[in-house]
Simulated scan of single mutants.
Amino acid sequence: MAEEAAPIRFGILGCAEVARKVSRAITLSPNATLYAVGSRSLDKATKFAASNGFPPHAKVYGSYEGVIEDPEVDAVYVPLPTSLHVQWAVLAAQKKKHLLLEKPVALNVHDLHKILEACESNGLQYMDATMWMHHPRTTQMFHFLSDPQQFGRLQSVHATSTYAVTPYFLENDIRVKPELDALGALGDTGWYCVRAILWASNYELPKSARALHKPTYNDAGVILACAASLSWEDDKVATFYCSFFTNVSMDIIVMGTKGSLRVHDYIIPNQEKEARFSTSSNSNWLELSLGWAPNPSDHVVYNDLPQEVHMVKEFARLVGAIKYNNSKPEDTWPIISRKTQLVIDAVKTSIDNGLEPVEIKG
């Protein structure tokens, strides 16, 4: 194999459930390969590699250090608890490993800055693992939102991300432990909502955020459900709701002066190989308000590869361009991550300050 075509060698830090999905994506991606996995338990790492498609030559380590110290590892995927991200992401960057970081990427923007600075100073590619961003449907939906004749000017966005958890989850999952993932539902499901709102607004930061009501907490003070509103200088508005108590919901409603977009499964499509959304443009009432004219249009996007494979492919492509062609890291992904974290931080501050509005400064 010519060097320029050699796949990017991934190491994985930890054996979280989501790492199984990303391991599969790396296996399916033509420009990536599973090369190493590390866990605090060698036995756990060995079992993870055996059950998740790692090739026979893959390295298995009983520590995270083993992966980031391995000179053959090009990039690391980090699905560790959020409280550990800044430590291990910075160490990985110092060892010249490109970084695919699971969301939420940090507990606050101060920690994220440390991660991004470590990547930038070492000439490394950074990307957060918000998988739906890479689905072909997302591109098609954005084309519609960018059409001044079909959509017009953005007026409002509403996003949800919810799922009903089990009693076991509420007692044991890292997402309800303040020492592991202190942001709780705001960091987990709220991250998707905030990213969707920023995506729909072409990543224009809102001027302010305000929590809409007192969140639901567990006994340890971790947020289990919350809602917030965002506003812009030009009077655009957005709202979102995230929860560990509500039936699965992954909705985006985007409204413009001339059209609207609706999607019911933006985070995880109902079917792996096809994804749907609906649009309406320049609509009005029929005679006696008996219906719409024209009716909303339904769209289906077919894809051979799951969205997480598209994510890995794109990340590996960027890493390969740096490794083989001396390209510069793509800065779009760090900028988007930072803006998402800024909004999350503002909502958290509003919650902590008794639901007062909080200015968002870029």
Rank of each mutant, 00 (worst) to 15 (best):
A75T: 00
V76E: 11
T82S: 15
S83W: 05
H85Y: 05
H85Q: 11
V86G: 05
L91C: 09
L91Q: 15
A92V: 08
Q94C: 07
K95M: 00
H98L: 07
E102P: 01
E102L: 02
E102S: 09
H110R: 13
D111R: 01
H113A: 12
H113D: 15
K114Y: 10
L116A: 01
C119P: 06
E120R: 10
E120K: 15
S121K: 09
N122Y: 01
N122L: 01
Q125A: 09
Q125S: 08
M127H: 05
T130A: 12
M133V: 11
F142N: 09
S146D: 09
D147L: 06
D147I: 11
P148V: 06
Q149L: 09
Q150F: 03
F151A: 06
R153I: 10
V157I: 15
V157W: 03
A159W: 09
A159R: 07
T162M: 09
Y163W: 11
V165H: 03
P167F: 06
L170H: 01
I174H: 07
V176L: 07
V176G: 05
K177L: 09
L180M: 15
D181W: 00
A182H: 11
L183C: 07
G184N: 04
L186E: 05
L186W: 02
D188L: 09
D188P: 03
T189E: 04
T189R: 03
G190H: 07
G190R: 03
W191Y: 13
Y192D: 14
R195W: 07
R195L: 10
L198P: 02
W199K: 07
S201I: 04
Y203L: 11
L205Y: 11
P206W: 00
P206E: 00
S208E: 11
A211M: 10
